[in-house]
Amino acid sequence: MQNSILEFLSNTGIPLVSFEQACFYSVAFFTCLFALLTVVSRNVFHSAVCLALTLLSIAGIYLLLDAQFLAVAQIIIYVGAIMILFVFVIMFTSRISDKAIRQANQQVFSSLLSAITFLFILYILIVRSNWLIPAVITQPLPSFTIRQLGSSLLTKYALPFEVISVILLAVMVGAIVIGKAEKE
């Protein structure tokens, strides 16, 4: 059944793509599409929704890269927490999703030019450079499991892990102090 379908597809001349490639290209397409919509949308609330969809697509990219824990963390932290924060601030600051208000400044063309130039430079750099790929690449790299992630996070990288908690505490205090309304 499957062989006959594959044979039929190869006879039609449509280039065959593997399942992995199809997944990658569709997820990459949606990521870029929603990222563009985030940047160019006139309504700030629409761009917040598009940013949430972009972050979800990036979680799909992480799944393609065998980083399951990171995909889940991305969904919980970014889509669950940061986007709520964005939406709250958008609601607190009134009148900003008005159609009449211009959302872009006067530097659109120069910014577009510089962004495209930078993308071109990055492309050249990525394609031309010789990555230090290990010589034993012929055999598949050992897959990195969540168990290993947890154990190395609490043994070898325990110090940065604790520093992160100090930073989060400082951010919490700072946000409360800055955001507190001044008493008259």
Partner: peptide, 27 residues
């Protein structure tokens, strides 16, 4: 990654809205 970075760069350079700039930085 380079494409998404450049989209975010474009947004951070062109947005007038501070919240929009923060969103581009997240990208």
């Amino acid at each position: 990654g380079a494409i998404i970075f450049c989209i975010g760069l474009f947004g951070a350079l062109t947005r007038r809205n501070a919240i929009g700039i923060l969103m581009s930085i997240e990208l």
